[in-house]
Design a protein around this nucleic acid. Structure first.
Lengths: 208, 208
DNA sequence: CATGATTGGATAGTGATACTCTCTAATATT
DNA sequence: AATATTAGAGAGTATCACTATCCAATCATG
């Protein structure tokens, strides 16, 4: 398969495929001469993952490169790899507070996790993300009550249990499942939540 | 309160406040002369909402303007207003298919909603978002099984019921609660989900 | 009331990002 | 032999969210 066929299959301009090659998101094809290389299904699959991550998931090229790098070359510690992957996911939060000698850099997130009975690890990017998100809803005048936090946390935890029970056994497949699942399923989740709100609202005759 | 005090309170450069004024995100202050205007708490609160929406929620200025417009000037139909608000939320999806005479523009989303027993309204933006998200996960080689969809949908629906049971009675407050709640709580939700995955993973000794 | 700071309003500039285009020499295809 | 395609490199483009600059009009202060 030459680059024109690959681009056509993926529904992308050749220039874009070349761009991904240049950026290191797509592994090079097998060179058959100075001006020719052949590509296979692995390239097509990779392009589809790239488009999913840069599209619906909303990652930048840099973030996508990081995620793909983790899948291609995972450490032997799934927990740490997952942590690194989450750190690459938006919304990106500057973790300036953690580097300072602040004894309690993420008070809201800590309180929330304690209330939920979950581990609190300040080095985990999602903790900083949670802190920023909670600060933002407070500042915007729509604070989240403890009760709501518990309710949300309970459901999300059950969903996490469901997900991890279905994790493939082989380590490499597990990393890909976990990292890609975290990122790719988020847009689905958000869409389903919005639709659930719509559905519930419609059944309550809230119009007019 | 003059613009310098407003900017200082909000922790923003004056230039940025002026930018929001120019863009119509922030309502003008009361002009007291040709070169002076006073601002009050409503401006400060608005700035905080703007920062929450453009920051953690990740909205563009244009999308933020749309959301704020809906809050300031809601229609009398909460259901339709919510629909319009969701349409402004990322990921933005081109609804080209719907405008064609395609008899079934969102097959995956329709199937999912039918399986969940929820209303299917192709004019609702979240339906297009769900379709795009499902297409992306399929293309990326990580399709979502019906079982998983049901599991996710069930939890999200319960969370939606929880949310709507706590909706304020007055229509204007209800719109603000619903629209801002949908948008502002999403980053919290995603962070909690990521942390739930981490927590569950850590308890299963998945490392090494 | 003189003098420096601040403001509204308009215009322009900036830096990041994700492509997209152009070009060249080498090779493939017909 | 004529035409098309390719790799690879560099430059160009469009969008976006600010950010900076300017000016004339006012304010605040001593």
């Amino acid at each position: 398969m030459r680059i024109s066929a690959l681009a056509a299959e993926a529904g992308l301009p050749i220039a874009t495929v070349k761009f991904y090659l240049r950026e290191g998101l797509l592994h090079p094809g097998v060179a058959t001469s100075a001006t020719q290389a052949t590509y296979d299904d692995s390239h097509l699959r990779r392009l589809r993952v790239i488009r999913a991550l840069t599209g619906p998931v909303g990652l930048s090229v840099q973030q996508t490169r990081m995620i793909l790098g983790l899948i291609d070359d995972p450490g032997d510690d799934l927990y740490a790899t997952l942590g690194r992957a989450v750190g690459a996911l938006p919304p990106t939060v500057d973790t300036r507070a953690a580097s300072d000698d602040d004894p309690d850099p993420f008070p809201r997130a800590r309180a929330a996790l304690e209330a939920l009975g979950q581990v609190y690890d300040p080095s985990f990017a999602a903790v900083a993300q949670l802190e920023a998100a909670l600060e933002a809803v407070d500042a915007a005048g729509m604070p989240i009550s403890d009760d709501r936090l518990l309710e949300y946390g309970r459901h999300l935890r059950e969903m996490a249990v469901y997900d991890l029970e279905r994790m493939p056994p082989e380590p490499n497949a597990a990393v890909e499942y976990t990292v890609l699942g975290t990122a790719l399923y988020e847009p689905v989740l958000l869409a389903l939540r919005r639709l659930a709100h719509q559905d519930v609202a419609s059944r309550r005759d809230l119009g007019a």
